[in-house]
Every structure is written in structure tokens, then in C-alpha cells.
């Protein structure tokens, strides 16, 4: 039963993610992406990592995808199906993607999966909070600076066009 649930979620994730990059209508792409992210949160729930699953939905589906859709709808001609969906730099991006795939395969091959035992209990949220505020405090703050920079950048780009 458990295996069946996992394979079902995995199949959904694959199908939705392929649809998310192949559809012509960019609004539909965003919707399929939302479904992909929801399926991934399903994987987290299946692995008993409820906190990760919940945050995945809250941040990605509730926040980011909604903003995507807003951006699509507020940008003129963005919803045109005749719009080109590949950029001029596709050669480089294929190269980078292949490289990333290689790295991921390397990581998969090196990890000894049998040793990983799932340990989740009620203290896991406390542990996440503690490690974010002590051990990972610097990366955590660094991330917020990057986000702030992205926000400022978006405002600057948005203002230039007026």
C-alpha cells in the first residue's frame, strides 16, 4: 500500500513537471508547476517530514506560484501562445543542465541509502529552529540578503519602464 502511494506521487510529479515545461500557454505552465510542487510536498508527507511538506505548500504554491500568475497576467503579451519559449542561450543551458545531472548522479551513487534511517518526531521543528539560529545562522542571513537584493532589483526594473 505504502509503495503504491509513493509510486503514484512519483508518477504525478513526473507527468506534471513534463507538462509544466511543454505547454504552450504560459498560464497553464504555471498551473502544472503548482501541481508539481504539490506532488513534491506529497513526497515529503509520505516521508513523515510534515513540516517540510507544509512549508513547501505555503511558500511555493501559496506564495510563489500566485506571484508568478500575477506577473504573467500583469505583463502585456506574456499570455500570447505565439511567444517564443526558448531563449538565445539554450546551448549553454543544455550544457549546464547536463552538468547538474551528472553531479546529481554522482551524489545518488555515492549515498549509501540503507544507512539513512528516518528519524522524525515532535522535536524536529525545535531542532530546525535551533540549527537555523545557531549553526546555519550565517547562510540563513545571507539568503535573506539575497532575497532583499532580488526584491530591490525587481522594483528598479519595474520603475525603469515608466
Amino acid at each position: 500500500m505504502g509503495d503504491f502511494v509513493f509510486y503514484f506521487i512519483a508518477l504525478c510529479t513526473c507527468v506534471f513537471s513534463v507538462l509544466a515545461v511543454t505547454q504552450r500557454d504560459i498560464f497553464h505552465c504555471a498551473l502544472w508547476l503548482a501541481l508539481t510542487l504539490m506532488s513534491i510536498s506529497g513526497v515529503y508527507f509520505y516521508l513523515d517530514a510534515a513540516f517540510l511538506g507544509v512549508v513547501q505548500i505555503l511558500v511555493y504554491v501559496g506564495g510563489i506560484i500566485t506571484l508568478f500568475i500575477f506577473a504573467i497576467k500583469l505583463t502585456a503579451h506574456m499570455n500570447d501562445t505565439s511567444i517564443r519559449q526558448t531563449s538565445k542561450q539554450w546551448v549553454i543551458s543544455v550544457f549546464v543542465t547536463l552538468l547538474l545531472l551528472l553531479v546529481l548522479f554522482k551524489v545518488f551513487a555515492r549515498t549509501s541509502w540503507a544507512e539513512i534511517i528516518l528519524k522524525t518526531d515532535s522535536t524536529s521543528i525545535n531542532q530546525i529552529g535551533l540549527s537555523l539560529m545557531t549553526h546555519y545562522a550565517l547562510p540563513f542571513e545571507f539568503m535573506s540578503v539575497i532575497l532583499l537584493a532580488a526584491m530591490v532589483g525587481a522594483i528598479v526594473i519595474g520603475k525603469e519602464k515608466k
Partner: peptide
């Protein structure tokens, strides 16, 4: 154990349907 966050995140999904 994350009940409050769960209910807030799930109800935030409605906005997609409305849109």
C-alpha cells in the same frame, strides 16, 4: 505537530482556484 502551519498553508491554496 505542525497543525497551525498546515491549516494556514492549506487554506492559502484557495487563491489559486479563485484565480
Amino acid at each position: 505537530n505542525v497543525g497551525v502551519v498546515y491549516i494556514c498553508s492549506v487554506t492559502s491554496l484557495c487563491v489559486l482556484g479563485i484565480f
